[in-house]
Amino acid sequence: MADIKYYDVILKPVITEKSMAGMGEKKYTFLVHTEANKSQIKEAVEKMFEGTKVKSVNTINMDGKNKRRGMVTGKTAKTKKAIVQLTADSKEIEIFAGL
């Protein structure tokens, strides 16, 4: 297991129709490091975004997609998504505020 710091855990937010619909229930979706576990994700969200308290974390491991370029085939990299549920008294995450 690699030594992952909290600032390396969250890579970027996932902005889709489904993730935007979840924001009404205080659910936020992030692309995270592939070796990060749920407790590391919870710690990273609470440290990076002030005033947030995490209720639960759900993770999804996604395999790479098959890609083809001419006759050469390959796969894209594996990724991991995390859906973070905040508590009712928690502050909103600011990066999603203008969307």
Rank of each mutant, 00 (worst) to 15 (best):
N37V: 09
K18Y: 07
F96V: 00
G24T: 00
E46A: 02
V57G: 11
I4K: 12
M1Y: 07
K47T: 13
L86W: 13
D8Y: 02
K78W: 03
K55I: 00
G51C: 07
R68Y: 06
T34N: 13
I60S: 10
I10F: 01
T29K: 03
M71F: 09
I15R: 08
G74C: 06
K91I: 00
Q85I: 01
G51K: 09
S56D: 14
E43A: 13
Y6R: 10
E17H: 08
K12E: 15
A82Q: 08
D63F: 07
M23R: 15
T34W: 03
I60N: 10
G22C: 03
K53I: 04
Y7N: 15
S90V: 00
F30S: 07
K91C: 01
K91S: 07
A21E: 10
L31M: 13
I15T: 03
L99W: 12
G98H: 14
L99E: 07
M23P: 01
H33A: 14
G22L: 05
M48F: 08
M1D: 10
F96H: 10
K12Q: 14
I83H: 11
L11D: 04
D63V: 02
K42T: 05
A44I: 01
L31C: 08
M48C: 12
D89I: 06
N58C: 08
A97N: 13
E94L: 04
M48R: 06
I95Q: 12
K80I: 07
N66V: 11
E43G: 02
N58T: 09
L86D: 10
K81R: 14
I4V: 15
V72C: 06
K91V: 02
K26A: 00
E50D: 15
V45N: 09
G24E: 12
T34A: 08
M71Y: 12
K5M: 08
Y28T: 00
